[in-house]
């Protein structure tokens, strides 16, 4: 179904600005599908994923610019480094619970942001740095249209991967961790390993998208690693619907489009955005998609 939507949507795009927004929406969707594995399925919050996203972006930018590595290699190396980093910090951090975990992940995100901002000799500092196009085997991805199809395919792949992961034994273990960690441990699930695993997976997702984003945008600033961006990602997941792959996807798309629509109301933008966030969570506490689905089910049951 997703494939159909992605194929049909461009019919409504009259210029490359629409493609640009759509690509950004899909980038966010990929990150959120990954993050949702952590938040929605394993029940662990992270307020630092923008840091991983930014590391991926800067990793690619630096490796291609100063070392002359091909973009694909730069992307994979960055993702590996981010994965390792997530693995190293994941063990101690994921022992923490609830708000303490939120604090710790937030701290890591902010530290990454500060490093990117301060090491101006390498990263260009707060004014950012430019990044070359993405090319693979002599074939260069350029222009919003081409990016749209490439990222569209990646999104479908991501969703397929996520759905498979959730139905695998790993996925079942994760849900057990979410339901009751102690319970899961009692029945012999190595909860901390699973939590770290999914933390690493979601960080790698964020890093890879960060790399692609850097190539596509052509210019990055440390702000992509800011606390606000981390919060934005979590809001996308929760608003769309936790523990639902398509929920996270819809949340990402809506929250990417919303500021574009609200740009016309100018100064009221922040108020309306805040009100929509509050309203959605008050009236649809499980998130958009799950709430709508259960409403449908109820109606069908009633008939």
């Amino acid at each position: 179904m997703l494939a159909v939507v992605i194929t049909v949507a461009p019919l409504g795009f009259s210029n490359s600005y629409y493609y640009d927004v759509a690509v950004n929406a899909m980038f966010n969707a990929i990150v959120c599908v990954g993050l949702n594995l952590l938040i929605g399925y394993a029940g662990q919050i992270s307020l630092g994923h923008a840091g991983f996203f930014a590391l991926g972006a800067y990793g690619s930018a630096l490796l291609t610019a100063s070392w002359g590595l091909p973009p694909i290699a730069a992307m994979l190396i960055s993702a590996t480094v981010v994965g390792l980093l997530a693995f190293v910090v994941g063990r101690p951090i994921l022992k923490l619970k609830g708000h303490y975990l939120a604090m710790a992940t937030l701290g890591i995100g902010i530290i990454i942001h500060i490093v990117l901002k301060t090491e101006a000799k390498i990263t260009g500092g707060p004014d950012g740095m430019s990044v070359d196009n993405f090319s693979l085997l002599g074939f260069t991805v350029m222009g919003d249209r081409m990016w749209y199809w490439v990222v569209g395919i990646l999104l479908i792949l991501t969703v397929w991967l996520a759905l498979n992961l959730i139905d695998s034994p790993v996925g079942r273990a994760l849900r057990a961790v979410h339901g009751s960690e102690v319970g899961a441990e009692v029945v012999g699930v190595d909860t901390s390993s699973y939590k770290v695993l999914v933390f690493v997976v979601s960080a790698v997702f964020a890093s890879m998208v960060g790399s692609l984003f850097a190539h596509k945008n052509g210019f990055i600033t440390p702000d992509i690693g800011s606390f606000m961006h981390s919060v934005e990602l979590v809001v996308m997941v929760v608003l769309g619907g936790m523990a639902s792959v398509f929920g996270a996807l819809i949340g990402a798309v809506i929250l990417t489009l919303l500021p574009q629509f609200l740009a016309v109301v100018e100064q009221y933008e922040a108020m309306i955005l805040g009100a929509i966030m509050m309203g959605t969570m008050i009236f649809l506490p499980k998130g958009l998609l799950p709430s709508i689905v259960s409403a449908f089910k109820r109606r069908e049951g009633g008939q």
């Binding site: 929760v238 009221y268 108020m271 966030m277 509050m278 969570m281 008050i282």
Partner: peptide, 30 residues
């Protein structure tokens, strides 16, 4: 905002308060 969602998940309430902070900032600038 908080009372109607009292029985929701912790994350849900966090998002509500983040929404509230964005709303209040928006209101203050106007």
């Amino acid at each position: 905002a908080i009372e109607p969602a009292r029985n929701s998940d912790v994350v849900t309430i966090i998002i509500i308060t983040i929404g509230a902070s964005i709303f209040l900032r928006g209101a203050a600038q106007i």
